[in-house]
Design a protein around this nucleic acid. Sequence first.
DNA 1: CTGTTAGCGCTTTCAT
DNA 2: ATGAAAGCGCTAACAG
Lengths: 342, 342
Amino acid sequence: MRASIKDVAKRAGVSISTVSRVMNKSAPVDKEKTAAVKEAIQHYNYQPNQFGRGLVKQNSQMVGVYIAHTFDSLFDSTYYLELLKGIQTVLDHYNYSMVIINEKDNLKTGNRFVDYVNQKKIDGLIITSSIIPGSEAENSYNDLVKGGYPTVYIGKRFHKEGNNVYAQYEDYMYQMIKEFYMVGHRRVLLFIYEGHKEYIQAVHKKVQKNMPNLKLFLHIQSSNDNPREEFKKQIHNHVYKLGCTAIGCSDMDYIHLIIGNCIELGIRIPEDISIISVEHKKEEGANCFPPINAFYVPAQEMGKIAAKVLITDIEEGNKANVFKELETKYSQRESVTIKKNG
Amino acid sequence: MRASIKDVAKRAGVSISTVSRVMNKSAPVDKEKTAAVKEAIQHYNYQPNQFGRGLVKQNSQMVGVYIAHTFDSLFDSTYYLELLKGIQTVLDHYNYSMVIINEKDNLKTGNRFVDYVNQKKIDGLIITSSIIPGSEAENSYNDLVKGGYPTVYIGKRFHKEGNNVYAQYEDYMYQMIKEFYMVGHRRVLLFIYEGHKEYIQAVHKKVQKNMPNLKLFLHIQSSNDNPREEFKKQIHNHVYKLGCTAIGCSDMDYIHLIIGNCIELGIRIPEDISIISVEHKKEEGANCFPPINAFYVPAQEMGKIAAKVLITDIEEGNKANVFKELETKYSQRESVTIKKNG
DNA sequence: CTGTTAGCGCTTTCAT
DNA sequence: ATGAAAGCGCTAACAG
């Protein structure tokens, strides 16, 4: 059994409260006693038991990160990875730990984070945009917010309460299409994550309204055993049969499959096909061959902000809701060319 | 304030011990009282506070995953990602949560996991291979093992005690070179992570001994702002000036940079240069252009095994040390060709 | 400045 | 089968 505060107190010849005082610097303590306590702490390699401390302070120094997603898709997306990096960085700085709360089944009815909250396992909660609108989780989350529990929601929010960090997915996807449109493309293929299905509809509508003579082809990519062949089929079909001259994709994950398949199919970039992607890591597109035009979504920054907001909320109480909208930045590189209308 | 066991007891008209009994099924309870308690639990949406429970049971249902690494490099490596996926999957199944313990500064003197152990924040610890041999962390880890604390070490171990899961890095890297050697290559360039520097030396020695007429060029890649140019320089130099006919790399992360640069430099794969990689995700190499020969290291499987071993250790006590060595599998694809000795 | 004590929420004897 | 009570390790209020 590890040493407890009692052992330390005994060895230092003081009471447990004195030990507690020097541990937490919560009250002035005689110099010599302080030294004795410190010696005893050293000697036992003493660390206060978090259950005891937590029981009285009711905090765990842990923060939950909720992800309603298969872990596979999560850990394959640069977006989440960068988000997590950002979160972890500031959590670490403020001496909090990150607990991942993963919901993989029953995305509609699951709300596993509620248990963590009720069990006091975590002091605050960061929700990742993968939560399904209208799901049980969304409801539970709203309850939490209403109850004043420290939370931050990353991604598109459908309610105005609560802290929110967001990079307008719909905006930059729309911008992407507009980029193509402006240089003459009229038939565009979009590779989209299954999880973004909901959001892309709004984009599609707006496109139909504002660029009536542009035809948008959507390919919703679900997990697949052979993405190589799947992409090849899609690209071949859309480029050769349906006359697409531009491909957009919402994550760098797909870009190598797209580039590689284009090369294999004898489709030149950008001469035959223009490509724009989204990058969640700086200059990611620049490291492709050829360098790919991309919208930079500062995912890591988003994670950092979310964590900072959450910690402020935890430690100082939520004064006002924070709504932080991040800007994306478009980098022109070598993957888009003007399409002469023919 | 959330409901406590007292509130539940009061509403159900029983004592708190009875509530505890029905919660934990730790003793038979009258049917009607059980029903009443369950109703009250429902009503309050009651979840036992983990501090209270933990204080008496001294367990947290949390497991620490220690990573002595910058988080960036961690979350950019498929190896770690797959490892984490595997760990998370089985942890989830056994109702444990994963806490990431990240050591980014002072890799030689840091041992942050010790605090988590002493504070009882975690019930067990998984150490990731990135721990530096001879470091403070290594020492602390050995102490933990000696003290019977539940741990699993993933990666090469320098001591025989404790649970260990391992895919012989040195073996498969040696095999990789041998593959090149067998088909006639005599000048091989290896792209290596900085973190693997220690291990590759042994490989190098063995190569020098067993394949005396093979010349091995090592490029240790540290984090770099412009990997694209860095790789281009390296490849250009080693292929054109130093006559390398084969490139090996220890992680898929680099493969697109290598392939892309080769294409840009007019180096054909596999006609001019043969390539072998390591893949930590099944068929990852098959999705490259061209498909890349690779050694499959079952990182996810390793994570699963590690977690399973750890949980067994936690819940049943460590009977004997588990030493599990995973086999790698070599997939031949289209990136290696015979080199006619000239 | 410091020791004594109550009490955080829970599980687990110990009686009954 | 069940309630009373002890006690897990700690902090904070209180008394001195």
